[in-house]
Amino acid sequence: MSKGILLTGGSGLVGSKLTKLLLDKGYAVSHLSRKHGNDPKVKTYIWDVSKWQIDERCIEGVDTIVHLAGASVAGGRWTNKRKKEIIESRTKSIGLVYQLLKRKSHQVSTVISASATGYYGDRGDELLTEDSAPGSNFLANCCLQWEHAVDIGESLSLRVLKLRTGVVLDAKGGALSKLAAPVKFGLGSPLGNGKQWIPWIHEQDVINLYLYSIENDNLSGIYNMAAPNPVTNKQLTRAVAKELHRPLWLPKVPAFALDLLLGEMSTIILDSQKVSAQKIEEAGFKFQYPTLTWALKDIYKKDINK
């Protein structure tokens, strides 16, 4: 009998593609969502984290919970209200699930949660492993609280796995589409000094790594989810321009201009994180797209064909 997988955030960029992969592999997939979905193959259970409400049937037949829910960090300026929403959408949501597991009989054995490389803050050229200390800015604090909330599952005798995700490359959404938009019009340029490291990862490797985590019970703890060959912002911008056959002629966008435009949220663009993939590779995971060149060729090949 195949495992039952419950996803929070299942309708998002990663969640929707992971859902398709899991269905193709024969898993029974269900979602926790604020509204009913349209896929008849996926059971949707309603929850409202702000009201501490959850359909208790959601954990029936479930072995593994994949926690992807969370408000977009780039969805608006970081007011105090917005910061609270970003953190609580991640921490309170998994807390609501754990409260349900405490009071209702279940067969859940594993919780796999997203986290982010934002955990490390702005670290220049330092090579960052899972043992590196956290940063001190808002994103680092958000990731700390996120991971601590997920860790409560260990007290429930669950296998807990946290994947610190880098910049997911996908032509149809996320950071790459925003970076590529001005490049397509010949208006692209590196951001800040262009020397900040980008912990990128191809979308296919993201969902493959979630599947690998589900299917390998020996994995637990923290793993970086980033390709083994990080690049700088300047290198990424140049690679995108080359793949799109567009020139780069404008000067770099200075950091102070980004600070004025985005406020504290500019750290998303300006923080430098040179993240190591050694631990997950030593655990046996094989990246399908280990280099940026391969990743971009695949992404834009798909984009053109569509």
Rank of each mutant, 00 (worst) to 15 (best):
Y119I: 10
Y120F: 08
G121H: 03
G124M: 13
T129S: 11
E130W: 12
S132W: 15
A133F: 08
G135D: 10
G135P: 09
G135Q: 09
S136R: 01
N137H: 13
N137G: 13
N141K: 07
N141M: 09
C142D: 03
L144W: 00
L144T: 04
L144S: 14
W146N: 13
W146R: 12
E147W: 15
D151W: 10
I152S: 12
G153M: 05
R159F: 04
V160R: 02
L161N: 05
V167D: 00
V167R: 06
V168Q: 12
L169I: 06
L169S: 02
D170G: 08
A171C: 15
G173N: 02
G173D: 15
A175I: 13
A175C: 13
S177E: 09
S177M: 14
K178G: 14
K178A: 08
A180E: 15
A180I: 15
A180Y: 05
A180G: 09
K184V: 02
K184A: 11
S189P: 09
P190C: 15
L191G: 07
N193D: 03
K195W: 03
Q196A: 00
Q196W: 05
W197S: 04
W197T: 04
W197P: 05
W197H: 07
I198Y: 04
I201G: 01
Q204M: 10
N208D: 11
Y210K: 09
Y210G: 01
I214Y: 06
I214A: 09
I214Q: 05
E215A: 08
N216I: 06
N216F: 06
D217H: 07
L219W: 02
N224H: 02
A226W: 05
A227M: 11
A227F: 08
P230E: 06
V231E: 06
V231N: 12
T232I: 11
K234M: 01
K234T: 08
Q235M: 14
Q235D: 09
Q235I: 01
T237F: 10
A241W: 11
K242V: 00
P247W: 00
L250G: 07
